[in-house]
Write a protein that binds this DNA or RNA. Structure first.
Lengths: 215, 215
DNA sequence: ATCATCTTGTGAATTTGAAAACAAGTTCAG
DNA sequence: CTGAACTTGTTTTCAAATTCACAAGATGAT
């Protein structure tokens, strides 16, 4: 957030992985970790980890390692992770409802404040209010920047609408393809594509062995 | 599948994106596409696209472009995408059931043949049979290689169990961290991490503009 | 049939990312 | 307090991926 020295995209992609591992370590009561330990844990070279961390400042101590709590705090502050992102969800079908009932949002990135659906009266058993899409402008929470998309029709139209209404980050579970203006950030989540990639990878390594995998 | 000339990992990651876009084009009745058009559509440089395609053979014609149907067919055949992957799903909570009811599996990668749960008798309204984990060895479909993980407890134990039972590809929706042997391929799907990454990216580009985004 | 106009596929160059190597600072035992 | 043993952060080296640039082949209008 302060003086970003051009953090590489590849590094940005790994931060959530580190953060998750660090939270796990913290939950196990571990307060100190060395890059080499963490490396084994997340299957990323220790040298890569140290470099990734170095973009955020001098976080470790020679001969000691890193303090887990400090790391988590720096990640949160420096990367603008303020824990209270107001997120909205569009489309309350099976998947949408499953995400709404997912209880691990708090104190991680923020929370889903409300949801929108074409037929909100048919949606029952959710812990947050569900509004009609017609009420969007009226009901959109103050400061809301991110939307989770769980619809299967009219994707492009919906995306355009969201962008026009000030959303700049979209996490999409929609399987269909869509395009956005340059300044909008999209994260696609697609089981089918993941499985395809998995199959492609499997078939391509069967030819020449040797791939390191982890989660 | 035939003679893979070391397809780069980055390329492997883009194949599903192309495939999805191509299917969309096909559904719109478009039979011919040029790398430049496709580039604008998926926000990947045309030259990158041409190189990516070149790993699978000479698929295009100079002065003409690519035939959409041919491309889709080659992708499927060459990459071992045989449309009938027998997939299993572990954990039938909200999310698991949502995935089971997702109706766009057929003719894309294969299908979810059955599911497993600790308490299968409590799971209702699914279109595929749900078995107890105790019956795993007995019920696992012949030729099944891929499992979708939708559980929130005992992740590591479950993963170890699956690996011991011949699964080598895992698509995990579990938020918790786990490790696998080297030859196992894992695709993590995690809404929270995606949102984190999105926030990180947003905050880092606000400093220096200019990022191309798409879906 | 011919030619101007396209578009692919690929060597070469450039940019980007990862790994190795090491200097400098910290810890902890005695 | 002293020094051996560690571990970070960064410089340098190496590898991977992307982009450039262009030759070669195809098209379609005339």
């Amino acid at each position: 957030m302060e003086n970003f020295k051009q953090v590489p995209k590849a590094t940005l992609h790994r931060y959530p992985i580190y953060l998750k591992a660090l939270r796990k370590l913290k939950s196990e009561g571990i307060e100190r970790v060395m890059s080499r330990e963490l490396a084994e844990y997340v299957a990323i070279e220790s040298t890569t980890i140290r470099r990734d961390f170095s973009f955020l400042g001098n976080l470790g101590k020679q001969g000691y390692g890193y303090n887990v709590n400090d790391l988590i705090r720096v990640f949160s502050e420096q990367l603008g992770m303020n824990f209270d992102e107001k997120i909205i969800l569009i489309g309350c079908g099976n998947l949408g409802k499953a995400l709404l009932n997912y209880n691990q949002w708090n104190h991680v990135v923020g929370e889903i404040v409300c949801a929108f659906d074409l037929a909100p009266e048919k949606v029952t058993g959710t812990s947050v209010p569900v509004y009609s899409m017609d009420e969007f402008a009226l009901r959109k929470p103050e400061g809301c920047r991110i939307a989770i998309l769980c619809i299967s029709k009219d994707i492009q139209k919906t995306v355009d609408f969201l962008v026009d209404n000030g959303i700049f980050g979209i996490v999409s579970f929609a399987s269909e393809h869509f395009t956005v203006p340059e300044h909008i950030i999209v994260k696609q989540i697609d089981v089918v594509s993941s499985i395809q990639e998995l199959v492609f990878e499997a078939n391509s390594v069967s030819e020449n062995e040797g791939v390191k995998s982890n989660a």
